[in-house]
Amino acid sequence: MALPAPDTLLAQAVARHQAGDPAAAIPLYRTLLSIIPEHPDGLHLLGVAMGGSGDLDGAARLIGRAVAVVPGMANAHFNLGNQLSRAWRYEEAVAAYRRLLALEPGHEAGAKMLRVAYHKAMETVWSESPLGDEDDIVIYQHNPGLGDNLLYSTLPELFAKRGKRVWISDQNRTRNPEIHDLVWGMNPYVSGVSTGPGKAGMAPLRKGFLTHSHILNWLTRIEVLHGLPPTNDLPRIYYTPKPHPTLAGRILVDLSSSTIRYPAESMRWFLRFTCERFHYDPAQLVQLRFSAKNVSEDNGGMDDIPSHTIGSIYELCDALAGARAFITVHSGANSLAAAIKGEKPEPAIHCAVDASHYNQKCYIWRNVDYTIVESTPKE
């Protein structure tokens, strides 16, 4: 009996597949491939069907053959990445998703899956890979905050002094482009952005992080975990602040945060307590607001305090550098202020933090005065 035409076989197989019966579709795909062994759609869709039945390695081989025949099959690259991810072959999955995004840069699901696979590869493959003498350093961390990025800000200079070229992964996360520009773009020891495998960063995921808990400062601990001498205990920025035209000498207040939430009554108590303790004149307080929408969230704005709207992260640096004092919460602004202050007497930095984060010693800096306050439990 003559076999159906290839197009008919493919249509029948796809109909069974889309009806939720991949087991019935698989023989039809195989029959198609017996007629045309390198049929790209047959290879691709048989691979997807086999992956659904649990044969992930077989699925990856078939879809890999499909994209070898037709490299421009964007969906096949996407499904190849998915099967490789399901098989825990994350490094290969990253390569598949990158090929997809080279074909379709706006593929949102592909970009999301690339982030997931890249992070998993950093956990399971690259974090265990020893650095050779000629290896470039690619820094990656997955938390988007300003403080999260500043936690790794001393690594490029230390690596560069050892003769390494340092890059920032294109998968490194920042809440907004200004964080990348300030922390990494202005760092003279960073060569640029890389699509290469992460070879540095993500210290809390490394096996030795907890065994080095005697190094309380997380930034110093990160340096040691990367085989570097314990050199710094404050974050670094390489932007030189300019005098702010209106905020110099003032007491700045920023009680906003994106990660830790605090009750409004705790914030009012902390502000009053700090002013009384350090004899700050409330008339000198200026509350900072931010024009960008993706900077932070308010913990209860103080409507009775005059405000100034900050237009950029660089204006924030300028304001902090010239302030008499800065009253804030345990957020990225706390770390940025610590970096700007360094060894200088001003600004005095006063930070509210809950007991849990203070005891972890994460983003806790020696040039900042901390007050323990109640935080809002996560829902």
Rank of each mutant, 00 (worst) to 15 (best):
D57L: 14
L101D: 07
S266P: 03
M302K: 12
L100S: 02
A337Y: 09
V48D: 06
A96C: 06
R366E: 06
V373P: 04
Y363G: 00
R277C: 12
T31Q: 13
H142K: 08
G145S: 01
E343L: 09
L205W: 02
S53N: 06
L255C: 07
A60N: 05
V116Y: 05
D369V: 07
N82V: 15
V116F: 02
K242D: 04
E343A: 12
C362K: 10
R366P: 00
I63C: 06
Q12P: 00
E157F: 02
A339T: 05
A200S: 14
R16F: 02
E91R: 15
I310S: 05
L146H: 08
R89C: 08
L205A: 07
A49E: 05
G54T: 11
H44S: 12
Y363C: 05
K361W: 13
K361R: 13
V368F: 03
G249K: 01
W218Y: 14
T211I: 12
E104N: 10
S296L: 09
P197H: 11
L151G: 11
P6N: 02
P27C: 02
T220P: 06
A96I: 03
N232L: 08
K242C: 03
L45Y: 15
F278Y: 14
G249Q: 04
I137S: 05
L151M: 15
P229M: 12
D304Y: 11
L46R: 10
G147P: 03
A339V: 05
T174G: 04
P40Y: 02
R98M: 05
G110S: 01
P177T: 04
L32W: 06
G147I: 01
R89F: 00
L336F: 00
W269K: 13
G81N: 10
E297C: 00
A76K: 00
P377A: 08
L228H: 09
G147H: 12
V166C: 15
D233V: 07
N172Q: 15
T376W: 01
R366N: 04
H142F: 12
S335F: 03
E157M: 15
A111L: 10
V67Q: 06
S194T: 05
I139D: 00
A117T: 10
E123W: 14
D170K: 15
T309C: 11
A68Q: 13
I139W: 00
R86W: 09
L103D: 09
D41V: 04
Y262C: 08
G52K: 12
L210W: 07
T309S: 13
E108R: 15
S356Y: 10
G64A: 03
L146K: 06
S312T: 14
C317P: 01
K341R: 14
C317N: 03
T154G: 07
I349H: 14
